[in-house]
């Protein structure tokens, strides 16, 4: 298991269909849709790594992963 400081929200824009679930249900409002309509992190410091975005992403395009992971 990785400790919290080794983890971060990761996004695969190729799979993101821009539904907005991650943005709307993020409890700390750290995500937004960019001008292509894809999910993007706008406040990494504010992210509490709760995983809500990952659970509600229908496209497996956003998840909590290791900072060092590919």
């Amino acid at each position: 298991m990785k400790s919290k400081d080794q983890l971060e929200v990761k996004i695969n824009p190729d799979w993101c269909k821009g539904c907005g679930n991650c943005v709307s249900f993020c409890p700390t409002n750290v995500l937004a849709l960019d001008h292509h309509g894809k999910s993007t992190m706008v406040n990494r410091e504010g992210c509490i790594l709760c995983g809500m975005c990952e659970k509600l992403c229908p496209d497996f395009a956003i998840w909590i992963g290791g900072k060092e992971d590919e």
Binding site: K10, N12, D14, W15, K17, G18, C19, G20, N21, E54, K55, L56, C57, P58, D59, F60, A61, W63, I64, G65, E70
Partner: peptide, 28 residues
């Protein structure tokens, strides 16, 4: 590029899936 759980249990070569934007099938 996706999460460990998806890499383990999904056929990555067949993704992204055909479901519409916002459809909850992927969540379930």
């Amino acid at each position: 590029m996706t999460s460990e759980i998806v890499q383990k249990y999904f056929r990555i070569e067949n993704l992204p899936h055909i479901w519409c934007p916002g459809c909850s099938n992927g969540v379930v």
